[in-house]
Write a protein that binds this DNA or RNA. Structure first.
Lengths: 111, 111
DNA sequence: CAGGTATATGACCTACCAAGTATATACTTG
DNA sequence: CAAGTATATACTTGGTAGGTCATATACCTG
């Protein structure tokens, strides 16, 4: 699972991240709130941790997980080039950008 | 492949979207620029089209594909709750939000 | 230190996906 | 309409991710 995009493709992982967005949670917190099996939660957390989406703090036997923003920032950055498609002042900008690069007057023979 | 997140988990699909971000392209345009096989391009475009990320315009034998913003907007929206983690004025806000919901004075027995 | 609680990990199975190859479909032009 | 060009699709196959079950590890309390 190379990329950050692959990581958040999994619905349970997104649910975990969304849960952690509001406040940190222990493994069993997540397990109960999301109705997932404990091994499943642990494994998803492992993946999220390896990818830098979360980090753990130790509280006795518990591991309390919290968000790390970096990979999410990456995703946000990837979306940047597309924002012009839904930002308000897109008309002129779009007409400028969204056309074939040399603007041939007609479609001729090939390639 | 239910969700929009699953769709963009695939690197070639992201590459196609990024290419289309600057301007619309025909299938063979994409094929050559991204050095992918033609069936692979067509299949990825099919997935992207079914998920609403792109739409096609017919130009003689060619299909010219372009971005449709809606699903990307969705992704952008999903990121919203996390933005506080990297927006500038996060200190006070974060201290407000990132804590157990009832703030128990101590960790007691269990659950 | 024994029993209990909290989390991590390994083995196994299944489902799904992406790539390739081959072929079908559609449109265009002479 | 025949030949060529552009794109779509069916089928097969290898790889991999996620679920469960069982077990290991770690820490806490009496």
């Amino acid at each position: 699972m190379e990329s950050s995009f692959g990581i958040i493709a999994e619905p349970n992982r997104r649910a975990i991240l969304s849960l952690l967005a509001s406040s940190e949670q222990s493994v069993s917190d997540i397990e109960h709130r999301l109705r997932m099996s404990q091994p499943s939660v642990s494994k998803h957390l492992r993946v999220l941790r390896d990818a830098g989406f979360v980090e753990a703090r130790i509280d006795a036997q518990r591991r309390v997980y919290r968000i790390r923003p970096e990979p999410l920032k990456e995703l946000d950055a990837w979306l940047a080039p597309f924002r012009r498609y839904w930002s308000v002042h897109l008309d002129a900008l779009e007409r400028h950008l969204d056309r074939p690069e040399k603007a041939p007057p007609k479609r001729r023979k090939k390639r």
